[in-house]
Amino acid sequence: MSNVKQIRDKQPENEKITINLGFVDLGRIDLLVQEGFYSNRSDLIRTAIRNQIESHVETVRTTLERHTMELGLRDYSKADLEALRDAGELLHVKVVGLARIAADVSPELAMKTIGSITVLGALQASAEVKAALADRIK
Score class of each variant (00 low, 15 high):
M69F: 01
V24I: 09
D80Y: 08
T18S: 11
A132V: 00
L133E: 00
L26I: 08
A87H: 13
I45P: 00
L26W: 09
R61I: 15
R74D: 09
G72R: 11
K16T: 12
R136N: 05
N51F: 14
T118R: 10
T62G: 11
I29R: 02
S77E: 12
E108T: 11
T47M: 10
V96W: 00
Q6L: 10
R41G: 04
D43V: 03
N51S: 13
L64F: 15
A103N: 15
L91G: 06
R46F: 14
H56Q: 15
E15C: 06
D9W: 10
T118P: 01
V24T: 06
R85E: 03
K5L: 07
T118N: 09
T47P: 01
K130F: 03
L31G: 09
G72L: 09
Q124V: 14
S126G: 15
Q34A: 13
L73C: 11
D9E: 07
F23V: 06
F37L: 04
G121R: 11
I101H: 02
A102P: 04
T113Y: 01
D75P: 14
D75L: 15
S116W: 05
A79P: 02
V129F: 00
I19K: 02
A134L: 04
L64Q: 14
R100F: 08
K130Y: 05
I101W: 01
A134P: 04
N3F: 02
V129P: 00
D86E: 15
R85F: 09
M1V: 07
S42K: 08
N20G: 05
K10Y: 10
I7L: 07
V57F: 12
A134Y: 04
I29S: 01
N51G: 11
L71N: 05
A132F: 00
V96I: 12
G88L: 10
I101L: 06
V24E: 06
I29L: 12
L133H: 02
D104S: 14
I53C: 10
E128S: 13
V129W: 01
R28H: 11
A110F: 01
E54Q: 11
Q124A: 14
R74M: 12
G97N: 10
T18G: 08
F23H: 07
R41A: 04
A132E: 02
S116H: 09
A99L: 05
N51P: 03
T63N: 14
Q124L: 14
K112M: 06
G72T: 12
V93E: 00
N14Y: 10
V96P: 02
S55N: 07
I17P: 00
L84T: 03
M69E: 07
T68A: 05
Y38P: 03
L26V: 08
T68D: 00
M111P: 01
L71G: 07
R136V: 02
H56P: 04
A134G: 05
R66I: 14
N14G: 05
L98Q: 11
V60N: 14
A48L: 13
A103Q: 15
E128Y: 08
Y38A: 05
S116E: 05
L32W: 10
L109G: 01
R28W: 08
